[in-house]
């Protein structure tokens, strides 16, 4: 009953937590980057209505969004191992989170593409742009800018969902904290500490995206 919250305990364990923190940062940053690329590429395939590929992307998005993330992670980690393609928990985590975030980003970027006025598409057409030029010179720069807020949401979710990777034994932030708690029962300290660390990461991500938005916004300020 007499639980004394100990800051000293947190400070003592900072080096261990920091290791987990760095794993979380690495797995998240790589996954967010790949998920963003998947989002742009997938939305482009749907925009250009590339035969077959467009349907494949549609099915992929539907499948990922209709199933829970945890089984997806298991499927990739154990599934690949069982067909003789063993993969480290780190790269299995990157794989799973990228596919997961990518599916949401396909829809995010597609929304951005759809927000571009028909007039600009027609202007590009009348200047004899091919579909790929329209995509690269008009749709991507304008559409991605519009979809940045929703891509930020997805990226924050990728970051937070990296905690699931403890289930395949990746020593990320939550894993490290749980491990310590099971040995020393300093529950409040550990979860308060990692809570703050996740908060800092989300904040850093938001600031980075705000910066990017500001850069892309430049032409639109009179």
């Amino acid at each position: 009953m007499n639980y004394a919250f100990s800051f000293v305990y947190i400070v003592e364990n900072l080096p261990v937590l920091f290791d987990g923190f760095m794993v979380t940062v690495r797995v998240s940053v790589i996954s967010i980057a790949i998920a963003s690329l998947i989002g742009i590429a997938g939305a482009a395939v749907r925009l250009l209505k590339v035969p077959v590929l467009s349907q494949v992307v549609g099915a992929y998005v539907h499948f990922i969004r209709s199933t829970p993330l945890l089984p997806q992670i298991f499927f990739i980690f154990y599934g690949l191992a069982s067909v003789g393609l063993p993969i480290s928990s780190f790269w299995a985590g990157v794989f799973a989170l990228s596919l997961w975030g990518g599916a949401y980003n396909v829809e995010n970027v597609r929304g951005g593409f759809l927000s571009i006025s028909k007039g600009l598409h027609e202007a590009a057409d009348s200047l004899a742009f091919g579909p790929l030029h329209y995509l690269w010179l008009v749709a991507v720069p304008l559409g991605v800018r519009v979809s940045l807020p929703s891509m930020l949401n997805t990226s924050v979710s990728v970051l937070k969902n990296s905690a699931y990777l403890q289930a395949i034994g990746l020593a990320e932030l939550t894993f490290v904290a749980m491990d310590k708690v099971s040995l020393e029962f300093r529950t409040l300290e550990m979860f308060a500490a990692i809570g703050v660390m996740y908060l800092v990461l989300v904040l850093a991500l938001s600031i980075a995206v705000r910066r990017l938005e500001n850069v892309l916004q430049k032409p639109f300020r009179p």
Binding site: S117, E122, A123, L127, L142
Partner: peptide, 17 residues
Amino acid sequence: RRRIGMVFQDYSLFPHM
């Protein structure tokens, strides 16, 4: 279309260029 230009009511300039 390289030989036939078009000018629209709403100008349709590319806003990011």
